[in-house]
Simulated assay, not measured.
Amino acid sequence: MLGDDQWHRLLATRATDPHAVRQAYAARARPGRLLNDRGTIFLIAADHAAHGALACGTDLMTMADRRSLLGRLVEALEHPDVDGVLGSPDIVEELPLLGALEGKVVIDSMNRNGFDGATWTMEQRAGHDQRTHVPEDAVV
Rank of each mutant, 00 (worst) to 15 (best):
D90M: 06
F115R: 10
G99F: 02
W120G: 06
E94P: 00
V105M: 03
V92Y: 10
T121K: 14
L97G: 06
T119A: 15
G99V: 01
Q124H: 10
T119Q: 12
L101W: 01
N113T: 15
Q124C: 14
V92G: 03
L98E: 07
E123K: 11
E102I: 00
K104T: 01
E93I: 01
L86D: 02
E94T: 00
L95W: 05
L97N: 04
T119N: 12
P89N: 07
M122G: 07
G114W: 15
D116N: 09
R112L: 11
D90K: 00
N111W: 09
G117K: 14
S109M: 14
L97M: 09
D116R: 12
D90P: 00
G87W: 05
K104I: 02
G87Q: 04
E93G: 09
S88L: 06
V105R: 11
W120M: 07
D116V: 05
G114V: 08
A118S: 14
T121A: 13
F115A: 10
G103M: 04
I91M: 11
L101H: 01
E93F: 03
E93D: 11
G87S: 06
S88C: 11
E102G: 02
I91D: 07
N111K: 04
N111I: 04
S88D: 10
W120R: 08
N113W: 05
L95R: 00
T119L: 09
T121S: 13
N111M: 06
G87K: 02
D116P: 06
V105S: 05
P89A: 14
P89G: 14
V106W: 03
V106L: 09
G87C: 07
W120V: 07
F115Y: 10
N113Y: 04
L95F: 06
S109C: 12
S109R: 13
R112G: 15
V92C: 12
A100Y: 04
A118L: 07
R112C: 07
F115D: 04
G117M: 08
V105C: 05
E94A: 01
W120L: 11
L101F: 02
L98H: 03
L97D: 07
N113I: 13
I107T: 12
D90F: 05
T121E: 13
Q124K: 09
E94L: 00
Q124E: 15
D108K: 00
G117D: 06
G99Q: 05
I107C: 10
I107P: 03
D90N: 10
I107E: 09
G87P: 01
G117S: 09
L101Q: 02
M122H: 13
L97R: 00
A118W: 11
L97W: 02
Q124R: 11
N111A: 08
M110C: 13
E123D: 14
V92K: 03
G114S: 07
I91S: 05
L86F: 06
